[in-house]
Design a protein around this nucleic acid. Structure first.
Length: 501
RNA sequence: GGCCCCUUCGUCUAUCGGUUAGGACAGCAGAUUUUCAUUCUGCAGAGAGGGGUUCGAUUCCCCUAGGGGCUACCA
């Protein structure tokens, strides 16, 4: 049987890059093994549901090129793929466990439990074998009381009956053998009082029903994996239990703890693939897309955050990643998010971009900035600026002087270098360029340099002013390369105008 | 507090007992670009600490320290 992997986010908001990396690793292994990559929406918590989150997840995966084989939008042989649409079955599975004495009904209210937690001095309260006979459940109550509670429809939870004295061994692809003592485990809630399953139940049932073979998920799930193993055993599914790989967490760039939503806003870099639009501006969040990142670069960067193939190759296409990926080479320790390195990866991809790839986006960015791009040679502009930027969306602002005649002069920098004797030189350069043929950067450049030399004014004084005349700033691409793209008329006009400033 | 995981340059990492501990990002210096960016070259920079095992430990084991996760009727 082929490998079946799933990415199972809960739609509680924008997906951050930790989740994206999890999705990516699942995708890579599925593709490498010729198996299926499944999207399952785990929306069993009604309170945390966020409208639009599921759609955001779908859009993010599409943007990154992680195509889904089975999922809510496209269906598949094991659907539905949204847990809220699979509601009825979970409880039946749990009740089956109750009937086999592997789980039980519990009528303790959240208030009861809170009280118990407060009564215990530290964090010592644990709903487990040592305490369950003192609680309100179908193990401690008389048969009659249980029957009455049930017939009275008093809301209950169903808890897994964890028997102490067992050693639960997990063979994790990343971490090796991890052992838990069942005496340390609590009787996890399987079904909540509202009838919804908890993650633990729904996850195990669905992974079994959807024939999932490999579970790749975040490290935060490692402790509860012991419960999941117990569940597989309770259901008699241990033979088809998936292989587990628990991923290291992505940490804050500096300081302690895992990367959070807030870090993006705090440090000024994206932590989400796509921008999360919101009418409330304070809630709107930037994404790698709105920062001008290439999806391929994000994939490449994330793939190498916590995993590497053991070679010195750094740039990987998605296909190369699929070929090279190996869960056993996933690093164990958490990895700090490094925005500078992400930028570097993006630069590598931006420099590889063809004009055909870039053109539609440049046009859109130009239009959004209010420029009319039609009059200029966008392809030439692109090739001039491409090697200079880390992100595609830096080009239009940097190249604004090709799209407007209203220059934004950097007067502070210009005035500090301006000498009056430069003005006549600018004029003679302009006059020379009026007739020079052909108007290319080599020919025009050579001619202009001759004029400057003859004038006796230092080259270092004139050149910055030529650039300032064309662009408004004293840094940027080669002056005559700009001039060629700008064309003879505009070049001459700007030189003359600047000479009279 | 308890349980579990982790620990190589500032950061991401290679090394599967014997290496001048390699690479990348960032940093610094130089070259190119009469600017800036790019590009190229070079420099600097690491095995948390302590015990073992071994002829030999970054590598295996233990302890300590530090970091992280979990400890919800959230996922």
């Amino acid at each position: 049987m082929s490998n079946r992997l799933r990415f199972a986010p809960s739609p509680t908001g924008a997906l951050h890059i930790g989740g994206i990396r999890t999705a990516l690793y699942n995708f890579l292994l599925a593709r490498q093994k010729g198996g299926q990559f499944i999207l399952r929406i785990e929306d069993t918590d009604q309170n945390r549901f966020v409208p639009g989150a599921e759609e955001y997840i779908t859009r993010s995966l599409r943007w990154l090129g992680l195509t889904v084989d089975e999922g809510p939008a496209i269906g598949g042989p094991f659907g539905p793929y949204k847990q809220s649409e699979r509601m009825l079955m979970y409880k039946d599975y749990a009740i089956r466990l109750v009937e086999e004495d592997k789980a039980y009904y519990a009528w303790d209210t959240p208030e009861d439990l809170d009280q118990k937690r407060q009564d215990a001095s530290d964090h010592s309260f644990k709903y487990d074998a040592t305490i369950r006979t003192q609680m309100k459940n179908s193990l401690s109550l008389s048969k009659e009381a249980v029957a009455k509670n049930l017939s009275d429809n008093i809301p209950y939870t169903i808890r897994l009956k964890v028997e102490p004295g067992q050693s639960i061994q997990i063979n994790d692809k990343v971490r090796g053998e991890v052992v838990f003592d069942s005496a340390e485990l609590d009787d996890k809630v399987l079904v909540k009082a509202d009838g919804f399953p908890t993650y633990h139940l729904a996850n195990v049932v669905d992974d079994h029903l959807m024939k999932i073979t490999d579970v790749i998920r975040g490290e935060e799930w490692l402790p509860s994996t012991a419960h999941h193993v117990l569940l597989y055993q309770a259901f008699g599914w241990e033979d088809t239990m998936p292989a587990f790989s628990h991923l290291p967490l992505i940490l804050k760039p500096n300081g302690n703890g895992k990367l959070s939503k807030r870090d993006g806003q705090k440090f000024g870099f994206p932590v989400f693939p796509l921008a999360w639009p919101s009418e409330n501006k304070a809630e709107a969040i930037d994404g790698f897309d709105s920062f001008g990142f290439e999806p391929e670069a994000v994939v490449n960067f994330l793939a190498l955050l916590g995993w590497n193939p053991g070679t010195e190759q750094e740039i990987f296409s998605l296909d190369e990643l699929i070929a090279a990926f190996d869960p056993e080479r996933i690093h164990k320790a958490g990895a700090r998010f490094d925005y500078e390195k992400a930028l570097w990866f993006n630069q590598q991809y931006v420099h590889q971009l063809s004009f055909a790839d870039a053109e539609p986006r440049l046009k859109q960015q130009g239009n959004e900035a209010g420029y009319n791009l039609e009059a200029s040679n966008l392809e030439a502009v692109f090739s001039l600026l491409q090697p200079r930027v880390h992100r595609l969306n830096e080009i239009i602002p940097l190249a604004y002087y090709f799209f407007t005649d209203t220059l934004d002069f950097d007067n502070e920098a210009i005035n500090s270098k301006w000498k009056p004797e430069v003005a006549p030189v600018l004029e003679s350069v302009a006059n020379t360029l009026k007739t020079i043929e052909p108007f290319t950067f080599e020919v025009a450049g050579a001619a202009a340099k001759d004029v400057i030399k003859e004038s006796g004014v230092k080259m270092g004084l004139v050149m910055p002013m030529l650039r300032a005349a064309l662009t408004g700033t004293i840094q940027g691409p080669d002056v005559f390369a700009i001039a060629e793209v700008l064309g003879r008329d505009k070049t001459v006009e700007r030189f003359l105008k600047f000479a009279k400033r």
